[in-house]
Design a protein around this nucleic acid. Structure first.
Lengths: 224, 224
DNA sequence: AATTGTGAAGGAGTTCACAGCC
DNA sequence: GGCTGTGAACTCCTTCACAATT
């Protein structure tokens, strides 16, 4: 590793590595010792130890040979890479069943994401208080995004409304969209879009559930 | 392709292919024509046309050269492969914010999954009616799973309770677990376990959100 | 002695490009 | 002519194995 620090922080990480870093972060957060070996980190994350070392080597040489990795230092480095150094503001668009639950879901706050706004088109939902937030009308999206510094959005509208909502978010300057609607949404390249389709997840699971008896493959693996 | 039908249905599909089949299924369900080309299917799914053809070739030769694929026939073949030929019974373990929302979430029913039971340990939650179901006490899990023929479970407990709940599910004979708790759960090889960690998804998104301005990579892609 | 960091080998998944078929 | 099915090339990811380092 002859790369300068500046290069390391600019270089893009392999996609597969990025997908595992949050898992390492979770293991590190639960760690009790001040130091952890690639072996132990790998066991907690459910991957190969060489994988861990290669992944971490992409961030720079942060381990100590013969000793391991300093937990809190590693947490800082990974957080920095992932853009989690400061709290990030999240908005939720579409306050149906799923949106409603996500507004109140504590898991995000615990990881440095702050849900600061919720939007809906339904006049019966708008104005209601959900998890300490007042649901805003969809028309105020741009205004509120600006006002509250929203950086990420969770898209929990029906599939039919997803693209229009995504367009409005892009227009308003939101740079990252996590789309829960069972539909592909298009966005310009500067906006990161990621799809989480619960139906798809269940269908994949269904396949492995029916296959599991014929072949001993365990699946609780890094996100595919 | 010289493989017999029997072999095709027994052979394991590449993991990456399995992850895309549900996406194809979604596109096919929305299709208006009776026939679809790999080009169009690929466009709808957001992948390469050669990818589609290779994926589908793993199921057998179901296309017609010069014409394309018969939509309804393809839907049947994919559904069969994924083990979706009949409605599959789903239970939800842990009726907190997320579990509550998933019980009422319509997206599952629309895709052939029937939510037939919900469980919780909290006596204040047990007995309540949620989305047409009465929340059962956790102790009745084995009994109700048996009684209602539950095949899949959504695990929406806190992380600290996830492993114990998974153990109970395995013990009760549930073959597939979709784990929403931010913790890895262990299970015997005959049980398929799949992890959906919303915090992890947001953290991955956060990385690409911060990188997006420096490099035009769109992400709304098939799971890597 | 223990553990990292990494070149090299191996494996999986993707894309190309075109023969084969309708 | 149009589109599928697939060998071959290519790219990406994983694992091995061991030198380097503390």
């Amino acid at each position: 590793m002859r790369v300068l620090f500046a290069d390391v922080s600019l270089s893009r990480l392999p996609e597969a590595t990025v997908a595992r870093l949050p898992v390492y972060l979770r293991v590190l957060t639960d760690a009790t010792e001040a130091t952890i070996s690639s072996d132990n980190l790998a066991a907690g994350a459910g991957v190969n130890a060489a994988q861990v070392r290669k992944d971490l080597s992409h961030l720079g040489s942060y381990g100590t040979r013969g000793v391991g990795y300093d937990v809190s230092y590693l947490v800082r480095q990974i957080s920095r890479q992932l853009g989690l150094s400061s709290d990030r503001r999240v908005a939720i668009v579409g306050v149906g069943n799923l949106g409603h639950a996500l507004v109140r879901y504590g898991g995000f706050n615990a990881r440095g994401f702050r849900v600061v706004a919720a939007f809906d088109v339904d006049p019966r939902t708008v104005g209601q208080q959900v998890g300490g937030l007042v649901v805003e009308p969809f028309e105020r999206l741009a205004e509120v995004v600006e006002e509250k510094g929203v950086e990420l959005a969770l898209l929990t509208t029906p599939a039919s409304a997803a693209q229009a909502a995504a367009d409005a978010l892009v227009e308003a300057g939101v740079g990252s969209i996590l789309n829960f609607a069972p539909a592909r949404v298009a966005a310009p390249p500067r906006v990161a879009v990621r799809q989480v389709d619960l139906g798809v997840e269940l269908q994949i699971l269904s396949y492995y559930g029916t296959q599991a008896s014929t072949d001993p493959v365990d699946l609780d693996a890094a996100p595919g």
